[in-house]
């Protein structure tokens, strides 16, 4: 780098020196900005890498229980969804990962399945046997036996999951949906 020549030590702000000073200032600021930003780049890449991860939609079939466990009951019952789960670097052996309500429909019809997640903001709903409605403990949304919103702020009814009867076993197509939307939008996993 060039240093100022000794002749310019008399501070006569001549146009050339001044212009050179501004140029140096701009250059210094630009390089300074650059070296400050570069270390941020890989950090931000790491921070945002969840967004770049594309998951799969379509759900997965999970065995929930047997028809025998539902027999003789007309009330919805809560079951655990048991499946293996990935969390960052870990793959966990099958364990409860969520809950689901199975609502018997009688007459040899397969039960309906509802996700326990309230479509409002994701709290888990409870089934109240006295009023025969699903109630969210957070913002008092309530849902009918068929999942329709009865009252409260939820933008849509409970999310129904497809049920498949395999022999004597009840399987569901386990999916998750974005909350707070009036439409069901599946979250890729």
């Amino acid at each position: 780098m060039e240093t100022q020549s000794p002749s310019s030590d008399v501070p006569t702000p001549c146009c050339g020196t001044k212009r050179r000073g501004i140029l140096k200032g701009v250059l210094a600021a630009a390089i300074g900005l650059f070296v400050s930003v570069v270390p941020l780049i890989p950090g931000l890449a790491v921070l945002f890498s969840p967004l770049r991860r594309k998951g799969n939609v379509g759900g997965r079939m999970i065995r929930i229980t047997t028809l025998g466990a539902l027999a003789g009951s007309t009330r919805p019952q809560r079951f655990q969804v048991i499946a293996s789960r990935r969390d960052a670097w870990n793959l966990y052996p099958p364990e409860p990962i969520a809950g689901v309500y199975l609502a018997p429909q009688g007459d040899g019809k397969p039960p309906k399945a509802f996700a326990v997640t309230c479509p409002h903001l994701g709290c888990a709903v409870d089934f109240n046997g006295e009023t025969e409605e699903y109630q969210c403990p957070c913002h008092t949304s309530a849902f009918a036996l068929d999942g329709q919103t009865l009252y409260g702020p939820s933008p849509r009814g409970l999310d129904e999951l497809a049920v498949e009867i395999r022999g004597d076993e009840v399987w569901i197509d386990y999916k998750r949906f974005e909350v707070g939307k009036s439409q069901q939008i599946e979250i890729p996993s």
């Binding site: 780098m1 000794p6 200032g25 390089i31 300074g32 070296v35 270390p39």
Partner: peptide, 24 residues
């Protein structure tokens, strides 16, 4: 030269910035 002096800005800042760039 005796008595000659400069301000930190911009000359020394530029030199510092270039050195930091090299290190980076």
């Amino acid at each position: 030269r005796e008595g000659y002096q400069e301000d930190f800005w911009p000359d020394q800042v530029l030199k510092d910035a270039v050195a930091c760039l090299a290190v980076l």
